[in-house]
Write a protein that binds this DNA or RNA. Structure first.
Lengths: 242, 242
DNA sequence: ACCTGAACACCGTTCAAGT
DNA sequence: ACCTGAACACCGTTCAAGT
């Protein structure tokens, strides 16, 4: 028993030099704050990454964080870009069908968002602009160019593709997070089942067909729909074309 | 002066029959609660439609609302379906190009969400299942059928189309609501402008082209991309086809 | 049986006052 | 100059206790 800790600091071991070993309270920096926020996101989800909770984690008051982070949205955006580093961008540089490789990258993006329920919702509202997001944009644009998609369509298309992934993740992940989400789904299926065939002929004809398929199949199919549509759909005249 | 109100009820006029005239505190019902929530949404936006704020509006405590509404998400879903009644579904029944008519309906849907910033975000997380949503589904499905889109693709496609509208509204509306949203956009444009052409050749080549176009043009174009893609993209084999 | 006051456990953000 | 305690103005949800 090297030290006899007093009641005030029960689990605070010291090095031989007497300095604190456990990084319980390092100097506050933006980098450190974001790193702690990322760790907290991984362990408890972005919902728990509030200014107050994060301040507690950093052993300070919430006001102190505002010296380094403008607000909660900015904090979440920083966490998002950090996690975007997990995307597998290798398909951008391998050989093979460009569509398949593009879908693989987009799926990787969506998977990252899937792992963090609230992250996708945050991504939809606050567009990221960090280095990892730029790399993602570049990779998608490179594959669209490889596929011969005209520049002006690619410029708008990259947004549509990423938005589809983000929205799907936001939607699906809500289903996991919220306890009533299953009920809501059942509410819609029930509503469709009980709908009158006279008033809703198409809806009742399709019935459960509307709800078939795994999230992954629907996601992949949606990406292909967008990619194929992109190749077929010119941008409106109104906007000047390069 | 028919009555001399005591200090407890200063502005409570009475009818000749002595009943309260101002509907300040009608009996609580689910319908009444939702109607008040809709009014509050129109006047102050969905952000302000909290259980506590709504209770105040209804002159009661928040706990009382839980007798009629399961939780805040359910309340917002009820408000959403009510507002979905504003969608102009007439193009479903007129003549003309089915694609244009479909886009018109989808745009009308998106416009409703645009008017209520937080509503779109709520729609993304909590799928509505009320009568107005069913009517929207039916209208979209009818037009897809008219266009010869196979049933199995229409079943998945209706979701993709509505999701695109919802996500676009959620994104755009956030730009209006949040004070820092413009900064974020600038942050991304600045990041693109400052990106190295060696590391980001495609991104820097496109540059500002990425951010051109009005929200409306991009929305309409996106709908057309999806519709065209729908006609070209078969569903995966794995899933049984009707 | 029906309703709700009061409490529990949180939030984001600001700013005056400290070091 | 830099940091932060304390306050302001809110949240959702529950449940014991009232009528």
């Amino acid at each position: 028993m090297p030290t006899t800790p007093g009641p005030a600091e029960p689990i605070e071991p010291t090095t031989p030099r007497g300095r604190r070993e456990r990084p319980a309270k390092p100097a506050l920096t933006r980098v450190g704050i974001v790193a702690t926020a990322v760790a907290l996101t991984r362990s408890e989800g972005l919902e728990r990454v509030t200014m107050r909770r994060l301040a507690k984690e950093l052993d300070t008051g919430p006001a102190s964080l505002y010296v380094y982070v403008a607000n909660t949205a900015a904090l979440h955006a920083a966490v998002l870009d950090e996690l975007l580093g997990e995307i597998d961008l290798r398909p951008a540089r391998t050989g093979g069908d460009w569509r398949e490789r593009l879908v693989r990258i987009l799926s990787s993006y969506t998977t990252v968002l899937f792992r963090n329920p609230a992250l996708a919702r945050s991504a939809l509202v606050t567009r990221p602009s960090g280095p990892h997001y730029l790399e993602l944009l570049e990779a998608v644009l490179a594959l669209l160019a490889e596929g011969g998609v005209p520049d002006d369509r690619a410029a708008w298309g990259v947004d549509a593709l990423l938005q589809f992934g983000t929205a799907t993740a936001a939607e699906q992940s809500a289903r996991d997070a919220a306890p009533h989400a299953q009920d809501e789904h059942d509410a819609l299926t029930a509503a469709v089942r009980n709908a009158s065939p006279q008033a809703f002929p198409r809806l009742t004809a399709l019935g459960t067909e509307l709800f078939t398929g795994t999230g992954e199949d629907r996601l992949t199919w949606g990406f292909h729909v967008l990619i194929n549509g992109l190749s077929k759909t010119a941008r409106p005249d109104r906007t000047a074309t390069t």
